[in-house]
Design a protein around this nucleic acid. Structure first.
Length: 108
DNA sequence: GTCGTGACTCGAT
DNA sequence: AATCGAGCCACGA
């Protein structure tokens, strides 16, 4: 277990996100490894399979909006639906209240 | 061993 | 206010 691939670490982090909460790319990237750009997280999720058991839909950008994945072929609405099923509400502009749903891994 | 790409983020215009 | 460009690291071929 020592040095798993960064991808595996990211997947583990996403799996740790409790239901009803969300996380941002930069947040996870910083937790997996400081200094790591959020792009790596997005790239990891891009290679992720929907049956991998990773709640990728709980990952949103820092703006609190859903990243539009051209590779996913307009499946952006899918993430929106999944998040709503989790109990997360969207603003009128399709944005989420990060302060309300953003999952903080570091408890105070 | 080298090159290119990527579901991001930030700053400036 | 919204939009554009550039840059960070990691993986694949």
């Amino acid at each position: 277990m020592s040095e798993q691939n960064v991808f595996d670490q990211i997947y583990a982090m996403v799996k740790c996100i409790p239901k009803g909460h969300i996380c941002t790319y930069g947040q996870i990237a910083a937790m997996v490894r400081p200094g790591m750009p959020a792009r790596v997280v997005g790239y990891a999720l891009n290679c992720l399979k929907e049956n991998s058991g990773v709640p990728w839909h709980r990952i949103v950008n820092k703006a609190g909006a859903i990243s539009y994945a051209a590779s996913r072929n307009e499946h952006d609405s899918l993430q929106h639906i999944l998040l709503e099923k989790e109990g997360i509400e969207f603003s009128i502009n399709r944005k989420i209240n990060l302060e309300k749903y953003l999952w903080r891994i570091i408890p105070e």
